[in-house]
Simulated scan of single mutants.
Amino acid sequence: MAYVIDGDKCDAKITWLPVSGSLKTGELVELIQLVEEDDKLSREALALKDIFNDIIEEGLTYPQLGYHDESRFKSYYLSHAAFALRLANSGKVIGGFYIKPNFPGRCSHICNAGFIVDMAWRGKGAGRFMAEQYKLLAPELGYRASMFNLVFVSNQGSIHLWESLGFKKIGVVPQAGNLKGIGYQDALQFYFSFVKE
């Protein structure tokens, strides 16, 4: 890791959450903010840890290697503001995301986010619902812009989603990731300003 980013923006409680919506399949969902107050992870955070580990094992979208136990997951994924998407009728967690500074200090007004969706729920609108909420949540947490550093070119669903929501491609990192079963892939960088011009 190039630098450690302090958690000064993670304490904000979003008062309008939970927020409800529906997936393409008609299932009702709700987005909640995770507030981890002690060392033991909540049920929702534990479910996100399992989804995250499945995605790492899949090896196609995140750069991490190896299993994330509770401590490692908390330090990476829950270090700042974090949110879980769950089914309204059962409470089953099907996805989530974090929001944290992309850079430290004087550049910490630009945030980054990491989205995960349970493999069984991909393609059903969970990612889009979370992305739309992200565009509302990040400025409320004090961020002025968003930057995604590593959207691999093989992840066409993610590329289409961010472009459809007005994010601009600002760069390419050649052969940024050695993805499982694919090999070296370029990564795109996306940017979005939350500040109205």
Rank of each mutant, 00 (worst) to 15 (best):
K92E: 12
K92N: 13
V93G: 01
I94Y: 04
G95T: 01
G95R: 02
F97R: 07
Y98E: 09
Y98S: 15
I99E: 04
K100C: 11
N102K: 09
P104R: 12
P104I: 13
P104M: 13
R106Q: 11
C107T: 09
S108V: 07
S108M: 07
H109W: 12
H109I: 07
H109R: 10
I110M: 08
C111E: 15
N112H: 13
N112D: 15
N112W: 00
N112A: 13
G114V: 05
G114K: 00
F115I: 07
F115V: 03
I116V: 13
I116D: 00
I116H: 02
V117I: 14
D118W: 03
D118R: 05
M119A: 12
A120N: 13
W121T: 01
R122F: 04
R122A: 01
G123L: 10
G123M: 09
K124N: 04
K124C: 08
G125I: 01
G125F: 03
A126W: 00
G127R: 03
G127I: 01
R128P: 02
R128M: 09
M130Q: 03
M130C: 08
M130H: 04
A131R: 02
E132N: 12
E132S: 10
Q133A: 15
L136A: 07
L136R: 15
P139G: 06
P139F: 02
E140I: 05
E140C: 09
L141V: 02
L141T: 02
G142P: 01
G142M: 06
G142K: 06
G142Q: 04
Y143I: 06
R144K: 13
A145C: 08
A145G: 14
A145K: 05
S146L: 11
S146R: 10
M147F: 09
M147C: 12
M147Y: 09
F148W: 05
N149E: 09
N149R: 07
L150K: 04
V151D: 06
F152G: 04
F152H: 11
F152N: 04
F152Q: 05
V153Q: 12
V153M: 10
S154D: 01
Q156H: 09
Q156W: 00
G157W: 10
S158G: 11
I159C: 14
H160L: 11
L161N: 06
L161W: 05
W162T: 03
E163N: 08
E163I: 01
S164P: 01
S164Y: 03
S164N: 09
L165F: 11
L165W: 05
G166E: 13
K168M: 11
K168G: 01
I170P: 00
V172M: 08
V172T: 15
V173C: 11
P174F: 02
Q175M: 10
A176P: 00
G177W: 00
N178C: 13
N178Q: 11
L179R: 09
L179Y: 06
K180V: 03
K180G: 04
K180R: 15
K180A: 12
G181A: 10
G181W: 00
I182H: 05
G183W: 03
G183Q: 02
Y184C: 02
D186P: 11
A187Y: 01
A187D: 01
L188D: 02
L188S: 04
L188R: 00
Q189Y: 02
Q189D: 02
Q189F: 03
Y191C: 04
Y191H: 14
S193Q: 12
